[in-house]
Design a protein around this nucleic acid. Structure first.
Lengths: 116, 116
DNA sequence: TTGAATAGTTTAACTTGACGAACCATTAGT
DNA sequence: ACTAATGGTTCGTCAAGTTAAACTATTCAA
């Protein structure tokens, strides 16, 4: 693959990652994710439970969950009126690794000079 | 390493990555990075050159370069009044891979159930 | 079918970040 | 010292994101 193609791939990676980057770049959403991980939430956590474990209001939690869901970082399961949120194991976070790897490869190929 | 330690590591990863995430999550800064990569900028690019290759004003470029620099994504070299910016090969981007890997490991250990 | 529980949506205030104009600081050359 | 070139900084403005209050929608149980 030539330089031009590599650059185009990185451009596409950036587009793919944009939502994930801004989703998990936010401190509030990071704490929501940590709450999900801390809890034995194989069954998922409800909005109310997350609200109780943070300093946030329910609408705020709802908003951030939507952002995380749009980014593919978490998934939701409905049960009656209850919505259970849980981390998506086959997560879009993997895209970040792809992006970084592609940048690293590009730099090794074309910008070795500043690898002092 | 136990669950608690793993979670603490991920918390630290989040803190380490915060700047990088918001730095490269921004579309404008992504395009600045791409300009740096497109150009054979082993010697680095000057602010004026980046301004010319984008739709941005010089102060805007200067601002974004500062953000990228604070995040450790790019480096600067001064030569007289000229400042040359170039991508940091030993970049902090690697931190992102660490973060994602640690999350993936954690999920595999403690949340296998939703790995359908 | 009514009431309670759960959670999403809308609205408006607030906060944060991005932008460009104007200004200031530093260096090189004369 | 003076001038030109380069680029960082400050400031006011505008746009985008975040928040909580109030409201709406859905489901379950009696």
């Amino acid at each position: 693959m030539n330089k031009h193609d590599q650059l185009n791939m990185i451009k596409k990676d950036f587009i793919n990652c944009k939502k994930v980057l801004s989703a998990i770049g936010d401190e509030t959403r990071q704490s929501i994710l940590l709450v999900c991980m801390e809890t034995d939430c194989q069954t998922g956590l409800r909005v109310g439970e997350i609200t109780a474990k943070t300093h946030l209001s329910r609408p705020a939690v709802s908003h951030h969950l939507k952002v995380l869901r749009d980014a593919g970082v978490i998934l939701m399961r409905k049960e009656g009126t209850k919505n259970f949120y849980y981390i998506n194991v086959r997560t879009k976070l993997g895209l970040l690794k792809t992006l970084v790897s592609n940048i690293e490869t590009f730099m090794q190929n074309y910008h070795r000079s500043n690898e002092i």
